[in-house]
Design a protein around this nucleic acid. Structure first.
Lengths: 162, 162
DNA sequence: CCAATTTCAGAGTAACTGATATCG
DNA sequence: CCGATATCAGTTACTCTGAAATTG
């Protein structure tokens, strides 16, 4: 005897529970990072470096502290990344008029060029990852992910994305 | 004049593009890892350790190589984690009958106990993260994430989850 | 004096690559 | 001999904690 609507499969093994969602998130992140790292090899950028460049491209003029909060790392970590990018001439930092302590970062023309090249590669990766998902479902997915980030108290657009 | 259906907001700043979805994934993963790390402190487990225990709890008898593929790390990395868990008596490894080279891992009673305690904490975190999302939407989210993992070529349930 | 920002210095975790040995 | 597994050893990438200086 079989419950109505059940699968026709022969007895079927114990119904393995779905993987924990946090586990899937971690696994996906690893796959994404590996993919991005590979895509970034030609322009000689690490994932943290590309992340910083990319954020600065969207929101120019962020300070090191702001950038750190945005990417959920400590300012001590971000200063390393930013220092490297500055040394390579991809980022320019200038003192905030009105608060000499704060140094606001912006992409140099070369930084713009590099991030544009990297973006192409990353977009290709995203297309591959989202292949077959409709635009609507993709939007839902992004929205839900953002919602999750916020629910964990790491807002993505708080006054300072803190 | 204003297009029909447009927002009523006064002029509104340049329509900032939505954050890149891979960026949101990375950001969420960082938040999740931080949360899990905090939740795991009482049982003195690292995130990689908990991940391994958790996977073994669902799929007992995996080899080091299988476990490595499942979690998307190299076997050289996994052997370290597994070694530590074995030394702490949370995992027991025994030679596969039929292939002496392969050592299959399983949780010890103590390992079962620890993972159960950790699970409670992690589940609380997931509840917080998914708060307000309906069960249906949560299922969609998980499904889409799994789909993304697969699309990137890192299947979650291939013959060997390779 | 306090809070935020910047930044140097020292560690530490977690991951990697390379190499070796065994087994089927 | 080949392919998969296990595992030792060395190294690297990334981030962290601690501390000090500066600014408003």
């Amino acid at each position: 005897m079989r419950a109505p609507g059940a699968s026709v499969a022969p007895v079927a093994d114990p119904p393995e529970p779905p993987p924990r969602i946090t586990y899937v998130i971690g696994r996906l992140d690893r796959a994404v990072r590996a993919g991005i790292a590979a895509a970034l090899e030609p322009v000689d950028l690490s994932v943290p470096e590309y992340t910083a460049l990319s954020v600065l491209h969207r929101r120019t003029g962020l300070s090191n502290a702001q950038l750190a909060r945005r990417t959920y790392v400590t300012p001590q970590s971000m200063i390393q990344v930013l220092g490297g990018l500055e040394a390579r001439g991809l980022v320019h930092r200038s003192a905030d008029p009105g608060h000499a302590r704060i140094r606001r970062a912006a992409l140099t023309p070369e930084g713009q060029r590099v991030v544009a090249v990297a973006d192409v590669a990353v977009e290709e990766l995203e297309r591959r990852m989202l292949d077959g998902l409709g635009a609507t479902r993709e939007a839902h997915l992004r929205d839900d992910l953002v919602r999750c980030v916020r629910a964990l108290g790491a807002g993505l657009d708080a006054p300072d994305a803190r």
